[in-house]
Design a binder for these strands. Structure first.
Length: 476
RNA sequence: GGCCCCUUCGACUAAUGGUUAGGUCACCACCCUUUCACGGUGGCUGAACGGGUUCGAAUCCCGUAGGGGUCACCA
């Protein structure tokens, strides 16, 4: 039983996607249960619609859950803000067991303490002023309505040990562990309390999460001990990194899964790519379907070091997946993108465009923006200058002029007919076909690259091609 | 700064004491070719450093250096 436990604070980070994926793969691989839990205990950071967006993103990515706010399940509710009573009761239990205590320190005082500690060069930690208040004083202050939090009573001078599936045995000295706040003064739990309580009652067996949680794991282990509960197994995943090897951040590029979706990446490609960041099935292949990933996934094989998110490789992988799709499937995906550019074309036409562009596209947008000449006439005035200089010579123009009647009288407008016309003219005039092909390409597309000329002309159609060639001959 | 984690080509990684250190992306060259791409062939580049253990170390141990994470009434 594993869980993905995001906070609804906006978009889904690609690092979160990988965490969700590894949880999913692990569950599916072992016939386990994948649980979704919403960790929305910070009311100040709640973003409207974030949960829905997250759900949509997971669905897009092909990650499914067996229990959660949508699916329900025996351990609900799966939204932490609906479980506050449970956390309060458990905070009380901890106090009763002497493992936690109420703290009346104000944020202002805490701030002051922290600042002086930092100034003195010592690690900032709560100075435990309220740790040994008498029961009478605590009762009196609570009765007086004084705002307070509940803090964990971290044992002094104890080694906290735990095993991490990826990293092995890890040990912390309890003197470096802060008396963490468990229950905030607004009555909501902090992550630490809610997480432990929920993982326990949801019977989570394996906690698979990002490495940034490693330093707080000893607190969690201590909490399990305080409750007398068996802790789950832990697996801390290596971080996803920027090119400079710092934690992948918005400042240095796209981090939201929806950014990649919007930029024309296919879910299978993103999943495949992100799966291989930190894990590898020891095969020489690189392309894996979700099923392949499930079959090969092994937590023990996850790497320890962080992995740089390399966009070029993602692009390559995306183009691999684009090539594998049928033109009809792709056309359906490209349709909404063409719509945003207000390109009016039939499904049949769009499928033809996709077919000739398919092995050249890195993203879905390439079918639209990179190939805009399929939808609207190119602006030849701003055509590729180098290409124009090289191929749009007075002779080329003359040849094109001569060729126009040949094209006009063509009864068919398919690849072979067009090639026949051009090659025949080239031969008759002692030219290499390239001397004609390049200027025609320029006149029709304005670009020096793209699909084969004859298939491209066939897609665009006779009338439009002739119109563009005539215009070029007259104006360029 | 304290604590913790990490370290194989530019990037992602393989190899679990014996390999000319392999693959993929990127890059370069050549082939194919009307361009671009695809495909094919070849190439480039790597064990952070220093000690040990061992017949033998990328692999095990210790140290150093470097990088990262984390130190909230955020998660």
């Amino acid at each position: 039983r594993v869980r993905f436990a995001p906070s609804p604070t906006g978009y889904v980070h690609v690092g979160s996607l990988r965490t969700a994926l590894y949880n999913y793969l692990f569950a599916r691989r072992h016939g386990g249960v994948n649980i979704l839990r919403i960790e929305d205990t910070d009311r100040t950071r709640y973003v409207e619609g974030a949960v829905e967006n997250m759900l949509r993103t997971m669905e897009w990515a092909g990650i499914t859950f067996d229990e959660g706010p949508v699916e329900g399940g025996p351990c609900g509710p799966y939204v932490q803000s609906e479980r506050t009573e449970i956390y309060r009761a458990h905070a009380d239990e901890l106090i009763a067991r002497g493992k936690a205590y109420p703290c009346f320190c104000t944020p202002e005082r805490l701030d002051l303490v922290r600042k002086s500690q930092q100034a003195a060069g010592i690690p900032p930690m709560y100075d435990r002023l309220c740790r040994n208040l008498t029961k009478e004083e605590v009762d009196r202050r609570i009765a007086a309505g004084e705002p307070h939090v509940v803090r964990m009573r971290v044992p002094i001078g104890e080694a906290v040990r735990f095993h991490d599936i990826i990293r092995g045995d890890i040990e912390f000295d309890s003197k470096t562990i802060d008396d963490q706040v468990l229950l905030k003064s607004d009555g909501f739990p902090t992550y630490h309390l809610a997480n432990i309580v929920d993982d326990h009652f949801m019977q989570i067996t394996h906690v698979i999460r990002g490495e940034e949680w490693l330093p707080s794991t000893p607190k969690h282990v201590l909490l399990y001990e305080a409750f007398g509960w068996e802790p789950p197994k832990f697996a801390h995943l290596p971080l996803l990194l920027n090119a400079d090897r710092s934690k992948l951040s918005k400042r240095q590029g796209d981090v939201a899964v929806e950014d990649y979706k919007d930029k024309g990446y296919l879910p299978d490609a993103l999943i495949n790519f992100v799966a291989l960041l930190g894990w590898n099935p020891s095969a020489t292949e690189e392309i894996f379907s979700m099923d392949d990933l499930v079959k090969g996934f092994d937590l023990e094989r996850v790497n320890k070091g962080g992995a740089v998110f390399n966009r070029e490789k993602l692009d390559w992988m995306n183009s691999e997946y684009i090539r594998k799709k049928s033109p009809e499937e792709l056309a359906a995906l490209v349709r909404p993108l063409a719509d945003t550019r207000k390109y009016i074309v039939s499904d049949e036409y769009l499928t033809k465009v996709v077919r000739v562009m398919q092995e050249r596209a890195h993203t879905l947008w390439d079918f639209v923006d990179f190939a805009s000449y399929f939808y609207v006439a190119p602006d030849l005035a701003s055509a590729d200058e180098k290409y124009k200089q090289k191929h749009w010579t007075p002779q080329a123009k003359e040849h094109l002029q001569n060729l126009l009647p040949e094209f006009e009288s063509a009864t068919d407008w398919d690849h072979d007919t067009l090639e026949g016309i051009v090659r025949k003219y080239a031969e008759a005039n002692g030219l290499s076909a390239g001397k004609l092909i390049h200027p025609i390409r320029l006149a029709v597309t304005g670009k020096g690259m793209g699909p084969g000329l004859f298939e491209l002309l066939a897609v665009i159609g006779k009338e439009e091609c002739l119109r563009r060639m005539r215009w070029a001959v007259e104006h360029l």
